[in-house]
């Protein structure tokens, strides 16, 4: 309803302005009511008002052209550069990560190899040490046994010597003792030869 009434009002004015078309001062357009705006368009539906086309085309070419240039020279390389930089960075980081991973793998392999080597070495050293200890122990035992045997035989020889000596001295002691006993008993000195013969007769043979 409003629409139709508005158009009804504008109809006469529209004819007026159509008679004198052209550039209406900007101030006038703004101060007037919407009725006047309709009038300015000559009652034509605004988007189909061909009188506005040259201005719109010109300004579209200017603004869109400027935007296109800005895009091509500045904005697209700028955003694209950021994206590319990030892409490169990620790829670089991935490379670095895989490099570190392979390094870590290599390190683990080296470690395990060295560990195995060290184990083998330790085993060998242990074996050698055990062998050496065994040999040494055997040698020591042999040496001690030899020494002991020597000491034993020496002791035996000494015992034999002492025994012989002792037996050798038994006769003398017996003679002295017998001489002293005779002297005490009969108060007369028996001759040494007598005593000696008597002791020898009383003593067991071979003593």
């Amino acid at each position: 309803m409003f629409v139709t009434s508005a158009f009804a009002q504008t109809a006469p004015e529209a004819t007026e302005t159509l008679v004198a078309p052209g550039v209406a001062p900007a101030g006038e357009v703004h101060t007037e009511t919407g009725v006047a705006h309709d009038a300015a368009a000559g009652g034509v539906f605004p988007p189909f008002d061909a009188s506005t086309y040259p201005s719109q085309l010109l300004w579209l070419v200017i603004t869109f052209g400027l935007f296109y240039l800005l895009m091509q020279k500045l904005l697209v390389p700028r955003v694209g550069g950021i994206l590319e930089q990030r892409h490169d960075r990620i790829a670089q980081d991935l490379d670095e990560a895989s490099r570190l991973q392979s390094e870590a793998d290599a390190a683990v392999a080296t470690y395990e190899k060295e560990l195995a080597e060290a184990r083998a070495k330790a085993g060998a050293i242990g074996e050698t040490a055990r062998e050496a200890a065994k040999t040494k122990a055997a040698a020591d035992r042999t040496a001690i046994e030899v020494e002991l045997a020597q000491k034993l035989s020496a002791a035996e020889a000494r015992i034999g010597e002492i025994k012989t000596q002792a037996f050798a001295q038994v006769g003398t002691i017996a003679e002295e003792t017998a001489g002293a006993i005779v002297d005490q008993l009969i108060g007369a000195k028996a001759t040494a030869d007598d005593i000696k013969a008597a002791v020898a007769a009383a003593s067991p043979k071979g003593a």
Partner: peptide
Amino acid sequence: DPTHQFQIQK
């Protein structure tokens, strides 16, 4: 007026 918004004003 629904078409007023499409009006070109100098």
